[in-house]
Nucleic acid binder design. Structure first.
Lengths: 214, 214
DNA sequence: CGGGTGATTATACAAGCGTATAACAAGGGA
DNA sequence: TCCCTTGTTATACGCTTGTATAATCACCCG
């Protein structure tokens, strides 16, 4: 009748923090901020609730860390596309755009996760700074790609064009994420490339598919 | 020492429901879904918490009603712009776009409010239906305006153009709402009109300001 | 000018939340 | 091998949440 104490292993601070952040993001993606309770997060991370406060001073701290990790992942995934693309300015831009309009970036979970943080972002200065930095980083990357195109070197014009292209991407990302069954496969990707080509007045080459040869 | 009972007036079901919905939306815009508790909503609406359940069977019911009211207001405000515009296809389209990129449509509160509902929208079938209907209604309105432009009568092409233009509007709306100090006044409005003109390959006339003569 | 009715208030309850703290034990250093 | 540090569990506390129900009184009707 004696209730056994739960067995456990000691783990590194790094792996515990990562597990907690991943668990928090998963739960928030599935059920919103109110689903990511301390107990639910601990349960998914495989620990007991009390241990959370051994790695994060407060729950807000964990939330902040989770948001920073999410934004870092998103920025990294969009950026990676330009690295593997051909060494042609237009091709790299097209790859950048297309990567943002495909999974794993364009996903319902991602959109809802991002949206769920919005209120906290406004309130918390640290999260607000992360938000601004990520947005501007993405847009500046876009602007840099635009400025490499022939005849698009003017920074002032390129800024406006980058804002417009960024809006196209964000808008399609939003719609594809919230209404996935409303569009044919790769339809939004094609529409996005055409729209951006029209805005820039430049032809964009077709992008390679994501198929990875075995 | 006897504690007096709080005085009250009887009011119509209509006005009570409206007051509760408005209070819920205000609180949600200010502090997210978690700020819109039953007690806070009742307090702002000037009643005691128990009365809420006299007008809404459950809190989810109130939330559903609030979402429907929000979407109705947003659709109405964007639509109204086209009614007062000149009877020229391009001018009406421009007015429609510009109205979506100005207050009271483009506001941080609006964006956060909309984002805060996203999780509930996916889960609740009724809210999901409202979401889809509002989005498609907006986009179809855009498509109808595009099809009135010279040489844009083809529905298939107009659909793709409407999706692209809608994305521009949504994206700029998002960015203007979440990062208002990052742009000059009316900058997003101008960028949006230029981008949409480029996508459509049609010149758009300048829009009238919102100044209302006394 | 008195009911009667139902809108409204007041109070209570169980469940869940974030947080605090004491007891335990896993695993490395001597 | 044994101890000692500290990662980890277990338990508890106070507060807030949504909901339920009984008591009250504002206002319409005759």
């Amino acid at each position: 009748m004696a209730e056994d104490r739960r067995p456990y292993r000691r783990e590194s601070q790094e792996s515990r923090r990562e597990a907690l952040i991943t668990a928090a993001l998963e739960l928030m993606a599935e059920g919103g901020a109110q689903a990511a309770t301390v107990r639910a997060i601990a349960d998914r991370a495989g620990i007991t609730p009390g241990l959370i406060r051994h790695y994060f001073q407060t729950k807000d701290d964990l939330t902040r860390a989770a948001y920073a990790a999410l934004m870092e992942r998103m920025a990294e995934q969009s950026l990676r596309a330009t690295l593997t693309a051909p060494d042609d300015p237009a091709a790299r831009l097209a790859a950048f755009v297309a990567a943002s309009l495909r999974p794993p970036v364009m996903t319902g979970d991602r959109v809802r996760l991002w949206a769920g943080f919005l209120h906290l972002v406004q309130r918390d200065p640290m999260m607000r700074a992360v938000h601004e930095a990520t947005y501007l980083g993405y847009r500046n990357r876009l602007q840099a790609l635009i400025q490499t195109l022939p005849g698009k070197g003017d920074p002032v014009q390129a800024r406006a064009l980058a804002i417009a292209c960024n809006a196209v991407i964000d808008g399609l990302w939003l719609e594809g994420g919230t209404l996935p069954e409303g569009f044919a496969p790769q339809e939004l990707e094609q529409i996005g490339l055409q729209a951006i080509a029209a805005i820039l007045g430049t032809a964009l080459p077709p992008t390679q598919t994501t198929d990875e040869a075995p």
